[in-house]
Design a protein around this nucleic acid. Structure first.
Length: 103
DNA sequence: TTAATGACCTATC
DNA sequence: CGATAGGCCATTA
């Protein structure tokens, strides 16, 4: 589906050391209402290893607690490994690491 | 085609 | 601030 392709493309374009929210990815994909669809697309994750799902977080910076690809701690470790700072709340420092579109 | 599901977001109490 | 309800869209059965 083209919708998924767009979502995957956007997620793959997320630079290392940055995080994007579902809503933002959805907005970049073309529709802000695709927030749920983005989650669904990542849930299918037909291209593991190619799609950095760990860079996609909630609007608040929290990680996906419902269906982490292997555990929230793993996602946190991956992000930390890429240079993404974490807050004591266990959330990503979205305030300083939010993906900024570079046109 | 209809109904149900989902890794969301916003508003309200 | 925590919990609940509703809305949004695409995919699947």
């Amino acid at each position: 589906m083209n919708s998924y392709e767009k979502i995957y493309d956007v997620v793959t374009r997320i630079p290392r050391g940055c995080v994007a929210t579902y809503g933002q990815v959805a907005a970049l994909a073309g529709n802000v209402h695709w927030a749920r669809v983005v989650g669904y697309a990542l849930h299918v994750n037909p291209k593991p290893g190619v799609i950095p799902c760990h860079r996609v977080v909630m609007k608040d910076g929290s990680l996906s607690t419902a269906f982490a690809f292997g555990g929230e701690n793993v996602q946190r470790a991956l992000l930390e490994g890429e240079g993404v700072p974490f807050l004591p709340d266990g959330k990503v420092d979205v305030a300083g690491c939010r993906w900024k579109i570079d046109f």
